[in-house]
């Protein structure tokens, strides 16, 4: 059986490459190689071309898989980086408020003991920087400041109420204090579920309005009542200051929470992309397998055609010689 005929029967490309001058294009193959080499040569070359095509397909598939795998590694690294970023912004990460202050004092004390003031200055700067970037520090600061603010508000209101008794507006002031405290309790305990925030706010506003009415209806105060009132107002001012700090810390903490969500979104993006790449790799492998299987079948069909042709030719020759 005639098998693969090498390039002898393969003339220059019958199809011009893209961009080639039209004058050089040969649309049909030259007749000589086919007629002189016979049909078996054409079949052999076709067989060889199919084998080459098969190699190209496999090589192309391998290149695509390698490229996708490289990209997948990058996505995996991105995902891990995003998850690390999300974890670093969690409220529990970093040194807490007291831990940061303790660390700062410890460093300063150690440096002072060694008489190294420049290192102390550096330590102060780095410890402050670390604290400012620590979610746990800001979380603790907000919680602590809120606690101070609430206690100060309640105590300040109580003292003002006590002072108001001397001014004849005690009943209203007491009611206002009760409303304010109730508002704080409702907000903290969330005993009314999701509506607690609004109920608490309403009670606090009513308490503040009551305090305003009590102040407005108060008659002339004694010196002692006036002093007590000033103390109450001072405590309330401290509470106000603490609330300012808590508000600022709340903004920073919201920033950390947003960073967590952004990092989670980035991680999700990397996960999605990684999954797409993984499936692309599976599909490329499937395609190469299917393509390879088809090449095998096509090659078998071609082999059958070559064999059938050879048998027919041999039989014809035998028949001619018998008759002759």
């Amino acid at each position: 059986m005639t098998f693969v005929a090498p390039a002898r029967a393969a003339p220059a490309a019958a199809v011009a490459p893209a961009g080639a001058p039209a004058g050089n294009v040969t649309l049909v193959p030259e007749g000589a190689p086919l007629t002189s080499g016979g049909i078996d040569d054409a079949l052999g070359v076709l067989y060889m071309a199919m084998a080459q095509q098969r190699d190209i397909t496999v090589a192309d598939g391998q290149a695509r898989v390698k490229s996708a795998e490289r990209e997948q590694q990058k996505e995996l690294a991105d995902q891990q980086a995003a998850l690390a970023r999300a974890q670093a912004n969690e409220a529990s990460q970093g040194r807490g408020f007291f831990s940061s202050i303790g660390h700062l004092f410890s460093d300063v004390a150690r440096d002072a003991a060694h008489g190294d003031l420049s290192k102390a200055a550096n330590d102060i700067a780095s410890d402050v920087h670390e604290a400012l970037n620590s979610p746990a520090f800001w979380s603790d600061l907000e919680k602590g400041a809120l606690f101070v603010a609430k206690v100060a508000a309640v105590v300040g209101s109580a003292v003002i109420t006590a002072a108001s008794f001397g001014a004849g507006a005690g009943t209203i002031a007491l009611a206002a204090l009760a409303l304010s405290v109730s508002g704080e309790v409702v907000s903290d305990t969330r005993c009314f579920g999701s509506a607690s925030q609004y109920i608490g706010l309403g009670l606090e506003l009513a308490g503040a309005a009551g305090g305003f009415v009590a102040g407005a209806t108060a008659t002339v105060m004694t010196v002692a009542a006036r002093t007590t009132l000033d103390i109450g107002v001072g405590i309330s001012a401290v509470g106000g200051g603490a609330e300012v700090v808590a508000g600022g810390a709340h903004v920073v903490n919201a920033g950390f929470a947003a960073n967590v969500e952004n990092a989670t979104a980035d991680a999700q993006e990397a996960v999605n992309r990684g999954a797409e790449l993984e499936r692309t790799i599976d599909w490329v492998i499937d395609d190469v397998k299917a393509s390879d299987k088809m090449y095998q079948e096509q090659a078998q069909t071609l082999e059958g055609a070559i064999q059938a042709h050879d048998h027919s030719t041999a039989a014809a020759a035998a028949s001619i010689s018998v008759k002759g």
Binding site: A10, P11, G44, M48, M50, Q52, D60, S291, Q298, H309
Partner: peptide
């Protein structure tokens, strides 16, 4: 035996695409 279109030329220009289809 109508197997191969020999007029296409034996130089690899057969219509076999990289995805195995023709």
């Amino acid at each position: 035996m109508p197997t191969i279109d020999a007029t296409r030329g034996p130089d690899g220009t057969v219509a076999v695409t990289p995805d195995g289809t023709t």
